[in-house]
Computed example of a mutant assay.
Amino acid sequence: MSDREDQLVGEFPLIPKQERAQLKRDLLLKSGQELFITKGYEHTTAKEIAAHAGVATGTFYRYFSDKRQLLMSLLENQIEMLMPPEPKWGDSDPESMLASLLEAHDKRIKEMGMQRLLPELLAKDTEFAEVLAAAKRKIFTRILLGLTKAFEKGLTWKDLDLNTVTWSLMTLAEHAPDKMKQCGNVTDYREVAKVICRIIFPPEEIKKLQLNETENETEADEVE
């Protein structure tokens, strides 16, 4: 049980201890996730979730007080997965590294499917909106720390306001793929990463980092 459950999930009617009961609860969670994604949160009922899971409506209320509690149970441990990735600067080609992170993040988001519910939830559930905002502030702090270290090493532009850069990086990482798709373009993670890296690093520093990575790979190959 995470430290957010008192705020987001609340107290469950029953925490199953037997395997059979846990399987029923898991079926309800899976059913709820499928219906929330296909129908939307507002148009899904507890009765439909139970029927889709192949159990009685009373069984639903044995494990969850309402559909919101089920949804928050699904999201509880996935909130940080919805956040933009956290790059580690200075040890590799920043463009390749960030492109790989963005692609992996987008793939993970698609597999979850829950991001489609966020606009609906943020508009109607202020408690969840506050928790999501807090998660964004945490990832902001971690990304800012990484940028600060790169700045102190002399890798970044000297006149950057790192707070502004951090928010810009998060916004581009979070929304650029969707914006490209809206324009009818296939998402090119390398191009998105290139834009972000151009904001952070002078071209000569990017070339140095790329060269260092190539040299390190060559040395590793020679050792093998």
Score class of each variant (00 low, 15 high):
Leu35Ser: 10
Lys208Asn: 08
Val131Ser: 08
Asp188His: 08
Leu162Arg: 02
Lys138Asn: 09
Lys207Asp: 07
Pro119Arg: 09
Thr171His: 12
Asn212His: 12
Glu95Trp: 07
Lys194Ala: 14
Ser65Asp: 03
Ala53Gly: 01
Asp161Met: 13
Val9Arg: 12
Glu48Asp: 08
Leu27Glu: 07
Pro203Trp: 01
Val131Met: 07
Pro94Trp: 00
Val223Asn: 10
Glu5His: 10
Lys17Pro: 02
Lys39Ala: 09
Phe64Met: 03
Gly184Ser: 06
Arg137Met: 15
Met83Tyr: 14
Lys181Ala: 08
Ala173Thr: 01
Gly10Thr: 01
Gly146Val: 02
Pro13Asn: 00
Ala193Asn: 03
Ile139Cys: 00
Lys110Glu: 06
Asn216Glu: 15
Glu219Thr: 07
Ser100Leu: 15
Lys136Phe: 15
Asp221Ala: 15
Leu8Glu: 01
Asp188Arg: 06
Gly32Phe: 03
Leu117Asp: 00
Gln69Phe: 04
Pro177Lys: 02
Asn185Asp: 00
Leu82Gly: 12
His43Val: 01
Arg4Lys: 05
Glu120Ala: 11
Met97Ala: 02
Cys183Thr: 07
Leu121Phe: 10
Asp106His: 04
Leu132Asn: 05
Ile15Thr: 02
Lys17Gln: 11
Thr166Glu: 03
Ile200Leu: 15
Ser65Ile: 03
Ala123Tyr: 10
Ala220Asp: 12
Phe60Trp: 03
Met83Pro: 13
Asp93Thr: 06
Gly154Gln: 05
Leu155His: 10
Arg62Lys: 00
Glu174Lys: 09
Phe64Val: 01
Ile196Glu: 06
Ile206Gln: 12
Ile199Ser: 00
Ala46Leu: 06
Phe64Asn: 04
Ile49Gln: 11
Asp6Met: 00
Lys158Leu: 14
His52Thr: 02
